[in-house]
Amino acid sequence: MEFILYSSTSSERSRCVEWALNYKNIDYQRIEIEPDEQMSSYLRINPFASLPTLGADGFYIKEPLAILEYLEEVFPSKPLLGRNVFDRTYIRQICEYVITTIQAPMRRSVIKMLYEDMSEEQLVEYRRNWVSECLVKLKSQLCNQSDFMVSYYFSLADIFLAVTYQQGQLLGINPLPFYERHQQWLDQIPRISSSEPTKLAR
């Protein structure tokens, strides 16, 4: 089966899918979608213009969670969605929170639609405050018995939150010790750190 990932280095959602593909050792061709392509030629592949999209033998899968659920079904080794029903539910809950509560309101197009007169400086401040506030709120819901976000093993929850925290670092949020320790822990595990796409921030 041939896979093509239509992605962008500036897209957190794309980075989450790339990390999962790499971790599962799935061969794929990566195509970088530039901003001008996203609203023109890319619409033939994904009419929603959202990133990423995974092409699988001519079949296009859109939206990160749909892509990741598909990969879990087709490539069950190295599972990333949990090993029991409770963990799977909790991991999905965290990923949904990241996509809908943290990432969606930070999209430039959404902010500009709601706040037309917002300057670039105000936009960055809004995004910085939002991601920091959401990560602080989420901390109480995460695992305190291990260095992973859910249970005692690496999962999509770790990927989504590591990528989100890196994005927050780019925006200039104040360091959050819990998430700093989590990133340092992942960096120490070769099979995890070697599969991570190039880091956005340090």
Results as ranks from 00 to 15, higher is better:
165 Y>E: 03
37 E>P: 04
182 H>L: 05
115 Y>N: 11
7 S>C: 10
38 Q>K: 15
116 E>C: 06
176 L>Q: 07
117 D>K: 13
119 S>I: 13
70 Y>N: 00
62 K>I: 15
33 I>L: 11
7 S>T: 15
5 L>E: 03
6 Y>P: 09
69 E>R: 12
70 Y>E: 01
122 Q>R: 08
153 Y>N: 09
184 Q>W: 01
175 P>H: 05
28 Y>K: 09
191 R>G: 04
29 Q>D: 10
9 T>I: 15
50 S>I: 09
142 L>Y: 06
13 R>F: 07
157 A>T: 03
100 T>E: 13
175 P>G: 03
77 S>I: 12
161 L>V: 04
54 L>Q: 02
99 I>H: 07
58 G>I: 08
53 T>S: 13
16 C>A: 12
147 D>W: 00
75 F>E: 03
127 R>S: 10
103 Q>Y: 08
38 Q>C: 11
15 R>P: 05
95 C>I: 05
53 T>R: 03
39 M>H: 14
14 S>V: 04
112 K>F: 11
117 D>L: 10
149 M>D: 00
89 T>F: 08
34 E>D: 09
46 N>E: 10
151 S>T: 03
190 P>D: 06
94 I>V: 14
127 R>E: 07
109 S>L: 10
7 S>L: 09
148 F>H: 02
170 L>M: 10
197 P>K: 02
7 S>P: 05
131 V>L: 01
58 G>E: 08
193 S>G: 04
34 E>F: 09
18 E>F: 02
189 I>V: 09
120 E>V: 12
41 S>Y: 09
116 E>T: 11
158 D>R: 03
93 Q>W: 08
172 G>W: 06
48 F>P: 01
35 P>K: 11
181 R>E: 14
19 W>S: 00
184 Q>V: 08
88 R>H: 11
138 L>I: 04
144 N>A: 05
